[in-house]
Amino acid sequence: MWPSRTNTETVTCLACGDEVTRSKAREYDKHGDRWDRDDKEFEHLCKSCHDELCHYPRDELEDVLVESRAGETSQTAFLSTYLETVEERYGTLEEES
């Protein structure tokens, strides 16, 4: 069984940076598998930031972000790697006329 949490535990929202009590936050798993809890530390979103998220499936997005080393490299390096990965998998984006 999971240990109980107290209402005074605070977490930081990864989107806006606000500190909120754990009871007023939502867990976020950057690997997209919040049910496999072994040896995992979750990030958190406050309820208002969570509500603003798109809740549609994002089947391959998390894999692409992890492969592109999101949060581990500079923004320039990440974007370059991300765009290369997306183009390799899905082709280039072209404007519709």
Rank of each mutant, 00 (worst) to 15 (best):
N7V: 14
D63V: 14
L83S: 09
W35L: 09
D39G: 08
R34E: 11
C54N: 14
W35G: 13
H50W: 01
S23H: 02
R34Q: 12
G32E: 02
C49I: 05
E72A: 07
R69W: 04
L93Q: 04
D18F: 02
T73L: 15
E88M: 12
T21G: 02
T10M: 10
E41I: 07
E84S: 11
C46G: 06
L53V: 00
R34C: 10
E27P: 12
P3D: 14
Q75R: 15
D29M: 01
V66L: 06
T8N: 09
T6H: 11
D39F: 04
D39P: 00
T92W: 00
M1A: 13
E96C: 04
E41D: 07
S68N: 03
R37A: 05
C46F: 06
T85Q: 03
E62G: 07
C13W: 01
E84L: 06
E72H: 02
S97T: 05
E62W: 14
G32M: 07
K24W: 01
E87F: 13
C46M: 07
A70K: 11
A77W: 00
Y90A: 12
Y28I: 09
E96Y: 05
Q75K: 10
W35S: 14
T81C: 06
S4R: 06
D39H: 03
Q75E: 01
